[in-house]
Design a protein around this nucleic acid. Structure first.
Lengths: 218, 218, 218, 218
DNA sequence: CATGAATGAGCGTTCATTCAT
DNA sequence: AATGAATGAACGCTCATTCAT
């Protein structure tokens, strides 16, 4: 920690930088050309390095993809975490979450595309496990959230697991919806989010006076 | 050999039969093992023919996939066409359409899975065009239908193109939602369809004067 | 059998010819350059074909090596089989066997060298099995033969299994012993064979009158 | 760094220690996993060092193997040297030599295995030379010894060079003969040695006084 | 003295495609 | 109409070796 030698840190730095560079190149190739084109040769060409360097830093293609995946999911989780101030209602909370997701899709579109590519095509057991575990976790959180909202009468009485599945699928495909301008993108985001918020929100006399009390504890 | 007149027809018949056989085998391999495994060798083994025969009948892999696609889409279109008796309302019409779609997904699951596989993985320009053109056509029809429903006050006033896109994406991914029993599948189908019908249907007294205030807090 | 079409036979002929050619090339590379150099690329270059053609005909390197092995062992077994006229005594029978072996080593030296290379280096389970089964069979035959000779008092009372092992090892390495001329080779062969015949033959007054009767049933 | 005078010696010491360590690790990998697995990476992992360090100390793989070989042969030569007290007869001397060899094979089995691995697989010119020169030297010594024994009438009148070759080959392969227990090993060793002693010794009533005329009938 | 970083060559294998038959 | 034979390109991966530090 206090040792003068920067060798360790330096080495670590180089390795981390290389790994980050390779992961970035992999994401770009995945997003632009698809999983089928994401060979070591193409990724390496994209990063202006030798294909063997990828093996050197990641061992196998499987490890590379897992590294890519971990990076992407970490950033996505961060982006989805949201701010500290709690929204007033469950629908608002859902809306906020969806909008944060949309925001991240646009600011880090390549990552989401790449993640989708890996999910769709990866046949290795370890990758499938990685996906199914993160998918299950995401589904579980979403289901719990929906059930809470239903308990408060703010969400329609529909099957939470089904809605969660549909929503997650829609999120997985959202990056395809792209407008022609930033403004249009913004409008699309808002409408897209409200589409699902509407679909799940309780309908009859929603949010009208007299039922405000059920929003207090959220 | 026997009758000169039947040569042409015979050839044509044999050719069609072969192409159909190959397409069937391709669909099965795509659905069961994924695009990455759908090599000529595997398809040919599945059909008990020689790999060269696929090239002979389709020229390139791209043409094969386009042929597969055309076949699948044609059957899907037929299935979606519906009966002649018009439903009473636009929401009912939408619901009927979605249910026909779901029905087709289950009765021809392999085809829909295969179509999804091709859409996801195919990177050739011609296939992308094929997809985007059929997507555009589908979107256009759906948009027209939604606009009609909106004009009749039966559909909520949302962006028709966006809703169409979301719905088409959801349909493309629907085959993933699969329950554990036939009964559960039926329930899922009904809920899934009504989810989107609800999302687009005009709510009772939607947005009429007196409830405008519910948009204020977002 | 009587069908006019020669297609089947022809196809089979081409395939057999190619396989034989590849096996021959493999044997040559193995004998001249060793197992480590016996890559598909080098074998193919040696046979003036494409490396992929080896995979086409043999599937995997393991299958190729097993094919090579089967060919070599078949020819060796044929050569060792000997003639129909039985020798007079066990030592003579042993001597005849060893001389036939030596003869084959020189007329098919490359094959024996190649077999040795494969045996030494092959790490695949299937190849090891192939070798150990053929080795066990050879050992068993030899042991039985020695025990018979011992029972007739013509072989020295030594451990048959040990002698068999030593002899098999010596045979495996025999191809290294090579003189400078055909005559010298012939002399070496005779001396080499008699070395082991002497080592195992019963010493005290062998084959002198009075013990002739024990040679009758061999 | 501390004392200028010890730099040279220190370097030399460290260098020797490193080289010895690497050679040891190489021998172990060769004996346990075979030549094909003896890559720099594996050797280095076995020695808990970096692969580059091997190149640093030995330059090329060829030099490394030559170093390994020299070490092994030196130890083997030491072991074979025997004690100062001369045995009574040439057969006894041969027997003693073979038993010393066997002893070394068991106490330094890994080295002998490693040597065998290198001999079998190494194809570089320099290594072949190293082997053939040591082989020639061994043969020459053995031939001289046999000729001496023959001159004293204690060894059978057979080709000394051929016997030497056969014996050296048998020694090279001896490490394969391994029993299931220490006792069995001891028995095997004795029988193995006496097999060759018998094969070369003058036959009837050998070595006892008054039977020197027994060389007539062979 | 020692190593991490990096690479070009080579490995066995799969692939879509060509072509003579 | 159909296929076996054949190939070049590409794949993920390991290798011995180089070099800056």
């Amino acid at each position: 920690m206090s040792s003068a030698g920067s060798t360790d840190a330096q080495r670590s730095f180089i390795e981390q930088a290389r790994q980050a560079q390779i992961i970035r190149a992999t994401i770009e190739v995945l997003a632009e050309q698809g999983y089928g084109a994401a060979s070591f040769a193409r990724i390496a060409r994209h990063a202006s390095i030798s294909p063997a360097l990828i093996t050197y830093h990641f061992g196998t293609k499987d490890f590379l993809m897992r590294g890519v995946l971990a990076t992407i999911e970490e950033r996505l989780d961060d982006a989805m975490a949201g701010t500290d101030d709690e929204p007033d209602s469950y629908p608002d909370a859902l809306k906020g979450m969806l909008e944060r997701f949309v925001e991240h899709c646009w600011s880090h579109g390549e990552e989401v595309s790449a993640m989708t590519e890996i999910r769709r095509q990866a046949r290795s057991e370890s990758l499938r496990q990685a996906f199914s575990s993160s998918h299950d976790r995401g589904t579980a959180e979403l289901v719990a959230f929906i059930e809470e909202g239903q308990a408060h009468g703010q969400f329609r009485d529909t099957d939470p697991a089904l809605f969660a599945s549909v929503l997650l699928v829609a999120m997985g495909e959202f990056s395809r919806l792209r407008g022609r301008s930033a403004d249009e993108n913004r409008r699309i985001a808002v409408e897209w989010a409200s589409l699902f918020v509407n679909a799940i929100s309780a309908t009859t006399a929603p949010r009208d006076p007299g039922s405000e009390n059920d929003e207090q504890d959220q």
